[in-house]
Amino acid sequence: MASQGTKRSYEQMETDGERQNATEIRASVGKMIDGIGRFYIQMCTELKLSDYEGRLIQNSLTIERMVLSAFDERRNKYLEEHPSAGKDPKKTGGPIYKRVDRKWMRELVLYDKEEIRRIWRQANNGDDATAGLTHMMIWHSNLNDTTYQRTRALVRTGMDPRMCSLMQGSTLPRRSGAAGAAVKGVGTMVMELIRMIKRGINDRNFWRGENGRKTRSAYERMCNILKGKFQTAAQRAMMDQVRESRNPGNAEIEDLIFLARSALILRGSVAHKSCLPACVYGPAVASGYDFEKEGYSLVGIDPFKLLQNSQVYSLIRPNENPAHKSQLVWMACNSAAFEDLRVLSFIRGTKVSPRGKLSTRGVQIASNENMDAMESSTLELRSRYWAIRTRSGGNTNQQRASAGQISVQPAFSVQRNLPFDKPTIMAAFTGNTEGRTSDMRAEIIRMMEGAKPEEMSFQGRGVFELSDERAANPIVPSFDMSNEGSYFFGDNAEEYDN
């Protein structure tokens, strides 16, 4: 993207840094990872977990959730003011799984939030270390993106479920800051804005008074975040219109849905970061690795190297396929839920299948599930090659597409044709070009129609051997075009429920 120079890199967003050079960025990201790792080690000690239990991804998720809940100030305040039966607002906890007599047992633990905050700050040299908290939120978000298709949420806001490739980060909490905003897809931002506008339509006082002023500035800020994701002048001009509207209503909703559809071809720039579970960072720190000293990046080879040398386990339900569970977590670790499966298959070195073909449910185990038949197995999170994460949407291309997802959002900077089903997408653009945004709409449609099938995206960008740390010898991959490109292809993934 041309304006790259004016933006802070995501590592800076990730670490609240002012302008830093590459070495400083690597050190501050490393410091953040160190903090998460030290916190995780301490929690495993508190909970008396064995090494194996500490490497269980379900335990990692519970521990991450506990610290996120302990620092969720708004919710904590709300819980104190609106006490609900049987919930102690000062405590947080969740299921911890232990191996007892050759069987997995679930144990519900409860801790004072104050105590968890103390352990977290102690692991982070006394700081609140917001960057580390956001990092864990993005890992949870990436896992949700890989596990669930947001059909219901899309339909509720009037969008087409086939636009799911635009929904990265749709389950990120509001408090995820600049680093969170960077990884949100165009569809996620559109959905947040539509929800806001709908509230304004239904509630006369939404934009009024002292609160209304705050609401208005939040609305304009979200519009600017979305505008910054678009790469064409016409899309940005249309966002200006939406932002400046005196009284946002149905016309703005129409414009936003139009823009979301246009992003299936004229893709937005959305950041991709490899955020790993805390149970990967903990053992690495415990083994003596100093992330701050060595430096770390979320968008280069580092996460690949770390996963190459990590042992992570997962509980497996009786009829689940461990290899499929591994694929789910591998995609989440690489922030690749909406990437082209052919690119992923090449990088991973084994075939990556669409969601609907995987015999696996989510990673988390519900409290009512029976533990008797639970097994555990090693997650295979290694890769054959590594590639640089991208934040450009890439230019655009036609490809055989599917009944489910009709476009992709690249996660890796790797040369390819970008699949999208042009006739299906263009069919949504018939007729409606009147109104105050008509010239911009016409211009956007013209650009979409001009998108050429034979153009290559990320020209000359390749993948790298894991021994090639400096990215000196790019390998331009070859793809098996007979395979499906979309992950949520004609899909039956479970729906995400809060």
Rank of each mutant, 00 (worst) to 15 (best):
V280K: 10
L379V: 13
A493P: 01
E73F: 13
M136G: 07
S438Q: 02
K184N: 04
L133W: 02
T62L: 04
P354N: 13
A153H: 03
E484G: 03
G450E: 00
L79D: 02
R152V: 02
V363T: 04
R246W: 07
M238K: 01
Y313D: 06
N321I: 09
G450Y: 15
S457V: 02
Q405W: 11
S310R: 02
S69Q: 04
K77L: 10
E53R: 10
S297N: 02
M189V: 14
T6R: 00
K198P: 02
M1F: 10
F488M: 07
K184I: 05
Y487H: 13
N417Y: 09
G126P: 01
S3H: 12
S377G: 10
L68A: 10
N321P: 02
Q409W: 13
K357F: 07
S297C: 07
M196T: 12
R470H: 00
E375Y: 05
I63M: 14
E220N: 02
A123N: 08
R221Q: 08
I36L: 09
M447K: 06
L358S: 02
G94E: 13
G86L: 13
A411P: 01
F420R: 01
N124Q: 09
R65V: 10
I253K: 05
L61N: 12
F412K: 08
K422V: 10
Y281W: 13
E454Q: 14
D160C: 11
R121C: 14
I388N: 07
S297R: 02
A260T: 13
P161N: 01
P283A: 14
R216T: 14
A278T: 09
L466W: 15
Y487G: 00
K351Y: 09
M167S: 11
L276Q: 13
D491R: 06
R152Y: 09
W330D: 15
D302Q: 14
F304P: 06
N250S: 12
K229P: 09
K305R: 15
V408T: 08
A70C: 08
L49F: 15
M481S: 06
R162H: 06
L172G: 02
P283C: 02
H135M: 14
I388F: 01
L56V: 12
N224C: 06
T171C: 14
A493R: 15
A332S: 13
Q12E: 00
G35F: 09
P161W: 01
K351A: 09
V285E: 08
G94F: 03
L110F: 09
A366C: 06
V183K: 05
W207A: 02
Q308I: 15
